[in-house]
């Protein structure tokens, strides 16, 4: 096997039999464990258990990751100099639960705990950009009046960039409109229901569902109400994006 010498340094080395699924964190035990951690461990391993110059990262520790109720943690502490060796079985289990809680939090931190602060732009520059690129369709005293009261800044950012995906709390996006013109017959316009290379369907103004099998003689024209937004994605600088958000935030 390659890299035997490296094995001791590498987090993933020791598997044994794959163990049972990770148990749920006991939050009450974790809270008790936190107090023990703050008393005996925090100076070297840090507030978040990510380690310091004095002690290693415990979130990345294989002993901690594989621990169940202190069963590995206890023997490890006994083997380490300058560590608390007389914790009771329950205290060890509580510390283990606290560390497991930190691990679980880390493993889920692709989700924001609080919204990012996206208000870093220049509102005046954003207003100028709006006047040049957006004012043909939108008005701060018309459709966008009070928009900043309806949406938080992150949603504002997402809404103007990606109106179809919208951002959290956004209304149902407008559907594309489609006009279908048969070789012989009148054009029919309505809200696009579904389209692929082989069929197209719509719901017309009366609410009637209509569908056609596509062929070269059937003309299909789709108009996406958000096409101007989509085309701007290639034009925005990041400064434009931040400036426009800052401007929209003034529309209270």
């Amino acid at each position: 096997m390659r890299r035997v010498g490296l094995a001791v340094l590498t987090a993933a080395v020791a598997f044994g039999q794959a163990g049972p699924a990770r148990p749920e964190v006991d939050t009450e035990a974790a809270e008790r464990g936190k107090h023990i951690y703050l008393q005996f461990c925090v100076n070297c391993h840090g507030n978040l258990a990510k380690g310091t110059d004095q002690g290693p990262d415990l979130i990345r520790s294989v002993v901690v990751l594989q621990d169940r109720e202190g069963g590995k943690l206890g023997p490890a502490l006994i083997g380490l100099p300058n560590h608390k060796r007389d914790l009771t079985k329950r205290q060890l289990a509580d510390v283990s639960q606290f560390l497991k809680q930190r691990i679980e939090e880390t493993s889920k931190n692709r989700n924001a705990v609080k919204p990012p602060n996206v208000l870093t732009g220049d509102a005046k520059a954003g207003q100028a950009y709006f006047g040049a690129k957006c004012a043909a369709c939108h008005s701060p005293s018309g459709d966008l009046a009070g928009i900043a009261r309806k949406y938080d800044p992150v949603t504002l950012q997402q809404r103007f960039l990606f109106p179809r995906s919208g951002g959290r709390g956004a209304p149902t996006p407008k559907r594309p409109q489609v006009t279908v013109t048969p070789a012989s017959g009148e054009p029919v316009t309505g809200a696009l229901e579904r389209i692929d290379d082989f069929s197209v369907s719509l719901r017309d103004a009366s609410g009637e569902y209509r569908s056609w099998k596509r062929n070269p003689d059937l003309r299909v024209d789709v108009v996406d109400p958000y096409s101007a937004h989509n085309e701007l994605l290639d034009e925005y600088t990041d400064a434009d994006m931040h400036n426009v958000v800052a401007y929209l935030e003034t529309l209270k």
Partner: peptide, 17 residues
């Protein structure tokens, strides 16, 4: 996460066309 030692993901992307 603006910590000097981020771990896991500490960020993500959102939205999309």
């Amino acid at each position: 996460d603006d910590d000097d030692k981020p771990e896991g993901w500490s960020g993500n992307d959102r939205g999309g066309f």
